Computed example of a mutant assay.
Amino acid sequence: MSKPLPMSDTLLIVSLGELGTNVLEAVGRSGLFERIVVASRSADKALGRINNALIGCGIDGHFPHFEALGFDFNDAACVGALRALRPDVIFSAPTLKPWWQVGGLDGVKESLAASVPFGGYVSLQLAPMAMFRERYAEAGIAARWIAASFPDVINPSLARSGPGPACGIGNVREPIAKIQASVGRKRGIAPARVSVRLVAQHAFEYGVFHPSPPADLPPYLLSVTVDGEDLTPLGHSALREPFPFPYDLHFNRVTASAALDGMRALISPEPMRTHLPGVLGLVGGYPVLVEGGDIRLDLAPGWTEAEAIAANEASLPWDGIERIEADGTIVFTAETVKALHALTGTAIESAHPRNAAEQARLILAALD
């Protein structure tokens, strides 16, 4: 039986949407942190969510020290608060409009909004993330920053234009349990014995979590072994098995589990292998080895770093993105440019941390 991880000192959760709330509930029960600070523009909202978590966590036998904090990272005064808190880990997932609210519009506007690929809305996450990045950098703190808003694309954009997050969570990590369960069932063994290494980008999981997965998935690399035996063909087959999946707010519970997995790796005193998106300024997600908070790629034998990077970059068009340039500019595909023009009446060809706020304003006005 493995030893429990020692508790780290302080986790700061910045922005309290649906994902942040699910992470709060999950991490409070995990025993990973002695102190959990929830920062929201509304301290009353933070306190209410904390009290809900406190009761549930207490019933489960966990009583971390919770704190609510009124915190607006659009205000430069928050820099002092960051310095005073001295968090060990920061989790942030801000958005100006969550994916589940892009819809329910009237008539033609609904059709125009639905025609914009997922990546076309990147400024709705990039704008607040870029603002928080500036406050984080100015504070000069050593906290490991987990940025969870579309990390496969936003994290490399941030890292290539200034200080970037340590990692994201979810996406590449989430399909692995499907592979393990399927291969374990077919071989009559415990799924935990199935070792998986996967290189994949955000759009990939929407193909494999599907009642009828397409044969043509976004580019990926996969290695599946059990006690050294190569079972990768079974893994490819598992990815294409029917898998009805509710893309609703319950999805945040899955992502919260992935967040705990990433946090364990970042604070573990021992090296840990896992999968993380948005690391090292790279597009997409990778198998990684995390040691002392430092992250490095942990690719399968025979894979080169260039091949892994190329696979994820080739997957970007599935999200409506052509490429991410060396300065962090996110260049849209022609399809996305056309759809954004139809929605906003404005030619929008790319996004960057410096112009994301204005682009987001145009998109939000069109969706209003």
Rank of each mutant, 00 (worst) to 15 (best):
L249R: 14
G184E: 07
L54H: 09
G293S: 05
I141H: 10
S268N: 10
V290H: 04
F332V: 15
P287T: 00
L85Y: 08
E305Y: 02
S157V: 10
V283E: 01
H210Q: 11
P175L: 00
P191I: 00
G140R: 01
L340C: 10
A130N: 06
S268E: 10
V279K: 01
A53K: 09
I169S: 14
R240E: 01
Y136I: 13
I348G: 08
G235A: 09
P87N: 01
R264E: 15
P6M: 09
P156K: 01
F33D: 05
L158P: 11
D327N: 15
R29M: 02
H210G: 03
K186S: 11
A256F: 02
E110F: 02
Q201S: 13
E67Y: 12
F73A: 04
L289G: 03
R240C: 00
G28M: 01
F66Y: 15
P277A: 04
S30F: 01
N74A: 12
A190D: 15
E174F: 02
G285W: 02
L222H: 08
D298N: 13
A314M: 08
S30P: 07
Q101E: 14
L5D: 13
A306Y: 03
G184Y: 06
E138N: 14
M7Y: 00
L260A: 09
A84P: 02
S161L: 12
L234C: 12
P211W: 02
E25S: 08
C78P: 06
E229R: 08
P269N: 05
L266I: 04
I321Q: 05
G17F: 01
A366C: 09
R49S: 12
P64Q: 02
K45L: 00
W145I: 10
A258C: 13
V279F: 02
G31P: 11
R323N: 15
V196T: 12
E34C: 07
T333G: 03
R83I: 00
I169W: 02
H210T: 11
E305P: 04
T10P: 08
G80T: 12
E313Q: 11
A114E: 13
F245P: 14
Q180W: 01
G207P: 11
T95E: 14
E134Q: 13
S350P: 10
L222W: 04
A114D: 11
T333H: 07
E110L: 01
Y206P: 03
H341N: 07
